[in-house]
Nucleic acid binder design. Sequence first.
RNA 1: GGAAAGGUGGCAGAGUGGUUGAAUGCGGCGGUCUCGAAAACCGUUGUUCCACAUUGUGGAACCGGGGGUUCGAAUCCCCCCCUUUCCGCCA
Length: 425
Amino acid sequence: MLDLKYVRENPELVKAGVENKNEKNTVDEILKIDSERREILHEVEELKAKRNKVSQEIAQKKKAGEDAEDIIKEMREVSDKVKELDETVRRLSDELNELLIWIPNLPNSSVPVGKSADENIETTKWHPKDFSFENEFKPLDHVELGKKHNILDFERGAKISGSGFPVYVGKGATLERALINFMLDYHLQHHGYTEVFPPFLVNRASMMGTGQIPKLEEDMYYMEKDDLFTIPTAEVPITNLFRNEILNEEELPKNFVGYSACFRREAGSYGKESKGFLRVHQFNKVEMVKLVKPENSYVELESLVEDAEDILRALEIPYRILLLCTGDLSFSAAKCYDIETWSPAENKYLEASSCSNFENFQARRANIRYRRSEDKKVEFVHTLNGSGLATSRLMVSILENNQTSDGKIKVPEVLRKYTGFEIIG
RNA sequence: GGAAAGGUGGCAGAGUGGUUGAAUGCGGCGGUCUCGAAAACCGUUGUUCCACAUUGUGGAACCGGGGGUUCGAAUCCCCCCCUUUCCGCCA
């Protein structure tokens, strides 16, 4: 949520940001309703001031035993008018809010302007060794490998739940669990995060707080009976831990890491890239979340990306990093880096992590603030989060990049103490 | 699912329908005392919005949320939400 005052004072900047993000520009409409609302607000507040003053006079007259019937009668009319105007103000506020929650966060000035993913900028590329399979053998893709070694079962997953609900079996299940534990331990031991194991169902206010609602409501699984949503990422419960709270400056930064299953309906995206792990309704993810002081958020963003990179380097998974352009930036983000891991079978990169700075956009929606020790003023924190990382995409890269010419799969060195085996096949 | 209690400021905790933004305590800040600190004592201490002004003045709103009664509601009435405890059921 943007600050209405900011919109009022910088309409042109807001319009430009919204349009660069390919979102609907309702700024003029917002300004019109805002000025109308303020006009009526002023009127009703004057009436209320009068009423408050006269009410005290009535109290005094009654105490003195005097008759106050005439001014009571007058105030009765004032109150009726107040009720009427209050109703108008409430209606205009609702209209205003309805428009405002659809305004995306504005891109940071360091974000390149661009229409689509084609205009993202590659900032890093890391390939530990040359995976030139062409010269040796044709790599199998992760679905074929999963089937061959009986470690992934997409068909039975489709039977018991539906397509896009993968089942991990045998060493596949162990490898998945190893990956999650490895990543959590790594962030705890090397990066100083605090572990959180959050609920997987959250209420509507939490979804609104981090900005999934209203724009992405159709992408969420929803439990109508209880008005609860399955989380699409641990970002939602973890960021919302401090909703409606005022933190002390000394508590910041708060750095959390947590595992969760993630659920996404992926409505309307059937057909393309839906093979195997490429697009699923449920996957596992280790997520990093930071609540920081505003002046530090961009330094924290870089360090968040490095924390995710460290995992890929330890696993020896080839990857690249993209700085997203304005047109590819998500609704709530001000700046975002995507980390993509290499799939030799698909011959392309797959998104395994998104590291974003939301500045105070989520904090404003979720009302997460902190008190500055110097002047005791409260202000919104900045929130960030990044996948560290999503196992489904990592699994593709691990299986495909570590296959050997004799059809086996080597388990990455750092995972072996978690799996208890070195090879699959 | 049944029953009961309760939701008030950063926290704890009062509150007869009329100077209650709200007692008191803790915490925080400033000061006195002290070589310094602690203790003690004194003072101070919220958020949001609006208008004018520019770092202040005035006004409005806020005691879980939403309605209602009233000239006036933290206080009375209705609905909803949440928390806690007990009972039942259950992984």
